[in-house]
């Protein structure tokens, strides 16, 4: 088996999930210049809600195909995350719209801690396993293996990204979002209700996060109240890598980060003579983050360097 190809495939699958979460960071940053650190937790809530729903559906209709159960989970998790993000923006961030930038940032961290603790109270401290309801057949692909689940994740991610791009590029709301990201004042002068556009941005990012939460818990086979923390940090790193505020950048950054991580984990043992093992996988995201911040703070596709400093 070709380790390189295998890790590339694994990396792209994981990266497509990072890309989904990174979109939420980048969209909110693009409009508010706020790093919404609670976004990782919204992803976690999406996974938890979906798993709860899947559990209920399995109990009620055990013969239903696995994909239908996952669809049912998504159908509840998506609106739940949308409502949650709508509330977070309204209660925690909106009152601080004109406050110094540190205030909403600290609030975001606070919100994320609150959500973690709430999730711990509701779902407990233990890992919740994702039932093996999705097909796991392996296929030979370019000398490596790819599973049904991996194909499913990549397809859903691509579909979600395509819908987002269409929404942002082709609809009235998307145009208003891009206009608002450039100037809230002028957007208002066009008749845009900027508060609503900001709400919509949070809500859309949360819908995507719900999808990502379900994908990631399906991929690893488990969910946990703390899972949003690392996932959020990695997705944020991916957004910075692509150029935070830039939607294409978040997609590219997510995929790249997934690949870097997978290749790094695949080869770190060889590179360090066995001193470091693949469980050091998590360091690569932050290594990349530091490199980007030092050498290209605007990210791969970002432009507004001075503006952001």
């Amino acid at each position: 088996m070709d380790i390189f190809t295998q890790q590339l495939i694994n990396g792209l699958v994981l990266g497509s999930i990072y890309a989904l979460v990174a979109l939420g960071y980048t969209m909110v940053y693009g409009i508010l210049e706020l790093i919404n650190f609670a976004h990782g937790e919204v992803t976690m809530i999406g996974a938890m809600v979906a798993l709860t729903v899947i559990g209920v559906v399995m109990g009620a209709a055990p013969d239903l195909p696995g994909l239908m159960m996952v669809a049912a989970g998504l159908l509840v998790a998506i609106p739940a995350c949308m409502a949650l993000a709508f509330g977070i923006e309204k209660v925690a961030y909106r009152p601080l719209r004109r406050a110094p930038r540190l205030a909403p940032l600290i609030t975001a961290i606070g919100v994320s801690i609150i959500l973690q603790n709430l999730a711990m109270l509701v779902w407990g401290r233990q890992y919740i396993s994702f039932p093996p309801i999705l097909p796991h057949n392996q296929h030979e692909f370019l000398g490596a293996h790819i599973t049904d689940l991996q194909i499913f994740i990549v397809l859903i991610s691509l579909l979600t990204m395509a819908i987002l791009v269409l929404l942002v590029e082709k609809t009235r709301l998307g145009r208003a979002m891009r206009a608002t990201a450039q100037s809230k004042e002028v957007a208002e002068l066009m008749g845009v209700n900027v508060d609503r556009v900001i709400s919509a941005t949070f809500v859309i990012g949360a819908a995507i996060a719900a999808v990502a939460g379900v994908m990631v818990s399906a991929y690893y086979g488990l969910a946990h109240y703390y899972m949003g923390f690392m996932l959020g940090l990695k997705a944020f790193s991916a957004a910075v890598l692509g150029g935070i505020g830039n939607i294409a950048g978040a997609m590219l950054g997510g995929l790249l980060l997934g690949v870097i991580e997978a290749l790094g984990a695949g080869y770190i043992g060889d590179l360090t003579g066995g001193f470091l093992g693949s469980h050091y996988q998590d360091v690569f995201a932050f290594f990349v983050l530091i490199l980007v911040l030092v050498f290209r703070p605007s990210g791969l596709l970002g432009e507004r360097v001075a503006h952001r400093a």
Partner: peptide, 9 residues
């Protein structure tokens, strides 16, 4: 797109 924004409402 700028012109379309002018007709937003």
């Amino acid at each position: 797109e700028n012109l379309e924004m002018g007709a937003y409402l």
